[in-house]
Write a protein that binds this DNA or RNA. Structure first.
Lengths: 379, 379
DNA sequence: ATCGGGTTTGCAAACGCTTGCAAGAATTGA
DNA sequence: TCAATTCTTGCAAGCGTTTGCAAACCCGAT
C-alpha cells in the first residue's frame, strides 16, 4: 500500500505540473501566474524580532516594544536591543506588523494619473510631508477603473493602508461609500462637491478667478473670454462664478458666447480657444480655468497669427511649472499646490492618530502671478 | 549595591524620557510616532476567508485555493465560493497573503522624485503595464535618503514588494547591494553604469545624440554648443560621445569651450546657455542633453535678445510633454518614455515569475523629432 | 460489489509582529 | 522593614493567508 500511494502521488504531482500552464489561461479569477521553479519561500535570511531577541538576550515582546511604541522599556534594555538590531541589520516586516494590528505606516493616494503638472506638484507636497512622518506612499491611479470604484477602494483600504488621499475624485461618493469603516481616515483634494463629513483641502477658487478677471478689467479689457474646466468639479464652477462676479462688479454684461467649455486639458483648451477666437467679435483677453487650457488656447491664437500679449491676453490658473516655462510666460492664479499636498497629509495623519477627530476643511489662498501674457487691449 | 542600581535606573529612565523626543529624530530605525488615544484595532467588520468559507459551507483552505492558486478545486465548489465571496464583499488581505508566503502583488518604484516630466512619463508607462497585470505600485522617492540607501532599500524590499524598479539611481551599487537576496527581482532604468548582472532598460543615447548633431550639421551649423547632463549618469556621457562622434564624422574639430556643464535641470540649462551665448564666438546652435536644459538655455538666449531659431537653433533630448508646449516647439530626440516604463515592468514580472531567469538589458531606439526650434545659421 | 487511481477537501502549522495579561522587579511611602 | 505602587518583562493568543499532509471522495475497471 505505501508503495502504491507513492506512485500515485508522484503521478498526481506530475499531472498537476503539466496542466498548470493550461489552467492558468482558463481560470477567470485573478491569480498568480507563476508556474515554474518559483521558490515560493520568501528570502530565508530575513532577520526577525526573534533573532534580535536572542542576540540581545531578551524576549521578543520586548524587542517588539522597542520598535513599535512607547511602552515602558528600560533604557539599558532598549539600548541593547537597538544595538543587537543594528548588528543584525534588522528591519521590521510591515506586513506582519499591520496584520497584527499595528500601523502599516503607508498611506494610499488615489489620483487620475500623475502625468500632469498639477497632480505631480501636489504629490510632491504629499511626499515631502510623508517623508517627514516616516510614512510611505502607495500610488493608485484610477482612470481605468470606472464602475469598479467600490471594489477598488475596498481592496485598497483593506488593511494595507492607514489612510487615503483622494485627488480630484470625479465620483467622490462612490469612493467614500466603499470605505471599510465609517471612520476610515481619508482626505479629499479638490473634491467634486462638498461631502458633509469629509476632511478636504482646496484653494480659493472663486477669489482667484475674481482677482484674475478683475486684473484683466483693470488693464482695460472688456470682452473677456472664459474657458471652463470639467463642470462636474466644483473648482470649475467656482472659478466660473468668480469670473462672473468680477464682470458684474464692473457692470460688464455677462455674454454667454464668451464662455467656452474646456476640460482642464491642453487639447480642450485649444478647441475652446479656437471657438473664442473665431467669434465675430473676438475677445481681447481670455481667462482659462487652468494653465493647461491656457497653453492650448495660446497655441490656437498663435496659429491664427495673433501676437501675445499684443493682440490678445491670456491668464491661466494653477501656476504649474510649465506656466513659467511657456512663452510668453503665463500670467496665472497660483494655487499653492505643494502646500495643498502637505496640508492634506497633515489632516490625514491627524485623523489617523485620533479617529474621533472632527473632519476639517482647509482652504488655502490663491495669488495672482503677473507675468508676460497680458497687456492692455489694442496697444 | 541595590541602592546604587536603583539610582542608576532612575537616572537611566529619566534620561530616557528626556531624550525620547530627541531620539525619535536620531533613531535610524523607523518607528511609530503615534502616542495618543489611538484605537489600535483595525476595522472589525472585515470579511475573511473564514467568513466566506462559512457562507459557502466549505473549509477556509478551499476558499484560499479558489482565490490564490491552481490547486484542484471542483467547479461547483469554486462557483459556490465565488458567489459567497461576492455576496459578502470579500477582498483578500494582501498583508496576510504575503506574510504567509504568497505574493504581495506590489512592486516598488524608487525614483528621485516625480515632479519632472521625464520621470512621470515613465511612471505612466509603468502604471499602465502594472494595471494590466494586476499589480500595485509603491512609490519611494530617494532624494532625501543620501547615505542611507542600504537601510532604505532593505526596508523596502523586506517583504512588502515583490520587485523593485530603480529610475536613474545615482549610486546604483549601494542600492543593489542592499537587496535582501542575491536574486531579488529588480530592473534599472537609465542606470549609472552598466551593472553586470542587472536587468535594465535604456535608450540609444549615443545614436540619438549623433542624429541630433548630424541634423544640425546637415542644415549648415558648424559651431554647435553642447550642454551636458550630470556626468555621473551614463546616459549623459553617451550623449556627449554621440555629439563628438558626429562632429568628427564631419571633420569638425571638437572645441572644448563649446561644451558647458549642465545637470538635466532647467536652471542648469539656463546657466550653461548663458555661458555658451556669452562666448566671444557664439555657437549658431546648441544641443542640450535634455529638454529641460534646452528650455533653460532658450530662456537665456531670449533674455539676450536672440530670436529662435533665426539667430540660434536649439535641440533637446527626451521629448517630454513640455517640449511640444514650449515656444517655439522644441526639436528634440524622442525617447519612448512610456514604453521604457512598460518594458521595465515586463522585465521585472518575468524575473518575479522565474527568479532563475537571466538578467536582460533592453535598449529602445530614439527618434529625432523635428519641430520649430532649428533653422540654418544666419538666414 | 470492490479496488485502485486520481481528485477534492480539510486540518494545522507556519509567516513575523502586536498586545492583553500576569508575574517579577524596583520604587515609594509609612 | 513591609505593603502598595509603578515599572519591566515574558508568555501566549491572535491577525488572515498559504500550503504540506493526509483523509475522504469519486469513477471506471475488474
Amino acid at each position: 500500500m505505501p508503495k502504491e500511494r507513492c506512485f500515485a502521488n508522484v503521478f498526481a504531482v506530475t499531472c498537476l505540473k503539466m496542466t498548470r500552464l493550461f489552467s492558468v489561461y482558463c481560470n477567470r479569477l485573478q491569480k498568480d501566474m507563476s508556474v515554474s521553479k518559483n521558490t515560493r519561500k520568501k528570502s530565508q535570511n530575513s532577520i526577525t524580532i526573534v533573532d534580535v531577541a536572542r542576540e540581545a538576550g531578551v524576549s521578543y515582546s520586548t524587542v517588539s516594544r522597542v520598535f513599535s511604541g512607547f511602552e515602558f522599556v528600560n533604557g539599558d534594555t532598549r539600548e541593547k536591543v537597538i544595538e543587537a538590531a543594528n548588528r543584525l541589520g534588522y528591519v521590521v516586516n510591515l506586513q506582519a506588523r499591520s496584520l497584527a494590528g499595528g500601523r502599516s505606516n503607508i498611506i494610499g493616494l488615489l489620483a487620475p494619473g500623475i502625468d500632469n503638472g498639477y497632480i505631480s506638484e501636489i504629490v510632491s507636497g504629499i511626499d515631502q510631508e510623508l517623508a517627514r512622518s516616516n510614512y510611505d506612499l502607495m500610488l493608485y491611479t484610477t482612470h481605468r477603473y470606472a464602475g469598479k470604484e467600490a471594489f477598488y477602494v475596498k481592496s485598497i483600504a483593506n488593511g494595507l493602508v492607514d489612510g487615503l488621499i483622494l485627488i480630484v475624485p470625479l465620483i467622490t461618493a462612490n469612493y467614500i461609500q466603499a470605505l471599510p469603516s465609517q471612520d476610515f481616515p481619508y482626505v479629499l483634494i479638490d473634491q467634486t462637491d462638498s461631502m458633509p463629513h469629509s476632511s478636504s483641502v482646496d484653494a480659493t477658487n472663486w477669489q482667484g478667478a475674481y482677482d484674475a478677471t478683475n486684473y484683466l478689467i483693470s488693464i482695460g479689457h472688456r470682452r473677456i473670454g472664459f474657458i471652463t474646466g470639467q463642470l462636474q468639479l466644483s473648482s470649475s464652477t467656482e472659478r466660473l462664478d468668480g469670473y462672473r462676479a468680477a464682470l458684474q462688479h464692473h457692470h460688464i454684461a455677462y455674454d454667454e458666447s464668451l464662455v467656452a467649455l474646456g476640460d482642464y486639458q491642453t487639447k480642450g483648451g485649444y478647441a475652446a480657444g479656437q471657438q473664442l477666437i473665431n467669434l465675430p467679435q473676438r475677445p481681447t483677453a481670455i481667462f482659462a480655468s487652468n494653465d493647461l487650457s491656457a497653453i492650448g488656447a495660446i497655441e490656437a491664437a498663435r496659429e491664427r497669427g495673433l501676437r501675445i500679449p499684443n493682440d490678445i491676453s491670456f491668464v491661466g490658473f494653477d501656476d504649474i511649472p510649465q506656466a513659467s516655462l511657456a512663452y510668453p510666460k503665463l500670467t496665472t492664479v497660483r494655487q499653492p499646490l505643494v502646500q495643498i499636498g502637505q496640508v492634506a497629509v497633515r489632516l490625514l495623519l491627524e485623523k489617523i492618530d485620533d479617529p474621533e477627530k472632527e473632519a476639517r476643511r482647509v482652504t488655502l489662498s490663491t495669488e495672482l502671478i503677473i507675468r508676460d501674457s497680458c497687456a492692455p487691449p489694442h496697444g
